[in-house]
C-alpha cells in the first residue's frame, strides 16, 4: 500500500494540504500535480476541491484536466466539490461538469440553514469504499449543493432530504463529505480507497 503512486490533482481549488497530510498520516507520500503525464501514470488519483463550481471548472479547463479526468482508468476519488464536478452539471452558476456521473447537482432549499455544515450520519453504505464503516457513523460535511440519490449512490445522508454522500461508477469514486477531516471514519475510508 505504501509503495503506491497516489497523485492529488492540483488545480488551485481548495484544501489540498489537508488531503496530503491525511495520506501522510497513513505513511504515503502523495504527489501533488496538474501534469497530464504524472496523473495518467498514477496508481490512484484524488480529485479534491473546495470553492465555487464555475471557477473550479475554468481552472480545470485551463490545464486540460477536464478532458483528462473522465478518461482515467485507475481508481479516482473525488472529494466535495470534486465529486460535484464529476457530475453532468451543477445549478451553481449553471456549470457544465465532467459528465462522469449522469447527474445534476442541485442547491439545498432554505428550509434549513445552508451550507449543510458539520458532522452528519452516513446511511445505506455499499461497496469496498465503506468496508469496516458502520452505518450511522458521522462524517464531516460542508456544502450548499447536493447530488440527488441515484443508482450510482454508494452511501446517503439526510439533510432537508436524502442525498448522495458517496457515488461510484466503474473506477470513479466520490465523497461529498471530507474523509480527510472525518476522524477515524475518514481514515478508514481513505485506507479503503488506497487498498482498492
Amino acid at each position: 500500500m505504501k509503495d503506491q503512486k497516489i497523485v492529488i490533482i492540483d488545480y488551485d481549488a481548495g484544501n489540498i494540504q489537508s488531503v496530503k497530510y491525511a495520506l501522510e498520516r497513513l505513511g504515503i507520500t502523495p504527489i501533488v500535480s496538474k501534469e497530464e503525464e504524472v496523473i495518467r501514470n498514477a496508481d490512484k488519483v484524488i480529485f479534491p476541491g473546495v470553492g465555487e463550481a464555475a471557477w473550479a471548472m475554468n481552472s480545470l479547463r485551463k490545464n486540460g484536466l477536464d478532458l483528462l479526468i473522465p478518461q482515467l482508468t485507475q481508481p479516482v476519488l473525488g472529494i466535495c466539490l470534486g465529486m460535484q464536478l464529476m457530475c453532468e452539471s451543477s445549478e451553481e452558476s449553471n456549470t457544465k461538469g465532467l459528465g462522469i456521473f449522469p447527474l445534476e447537482v442541485k442547491r439545498f432549499t432554505n428550509e434549513r440553514k445552508v451550507p449543510h455544515m458539520g458532522w452528519n450520519q452516513l446511511e445505506k453504505l455499499n461497496g469496498a469504499l465503506f468496508k469496516g464503516v458502520v452505518a450511522m457513523e458521522f462524517a464531516y460535511f460542508v456544502h450548499s449543493y447536493y447530488v440527488p440519490v441515484s443508482e450510482d449512490t454508494l452511501a446517503s445522508c439526510n439533510y432537508i432530504l436524502d442525498f448522495s454522500a458517496s457515488l461510484q461508477k466503474n473506477n470513479f469514486y466520490a465523497c461529498q463529505f471530507h474523509p480527510e477531516k472525518s476522524g477515524a471514519v475518514g481514515v478508514q475510508i481513505l485506507k479503503n480507497f488506497i487498498n482498492l
Binding site: Y21, Y140, H178, K181, S182, G183, A184, G186
Partner: peptide, 8 residues
Amino acid sequence: VAKELNIP
C-alpha cells in the same frame, strides 16, 4: 496542527 489533526 494540520499534519496531526483529522478534524476541522
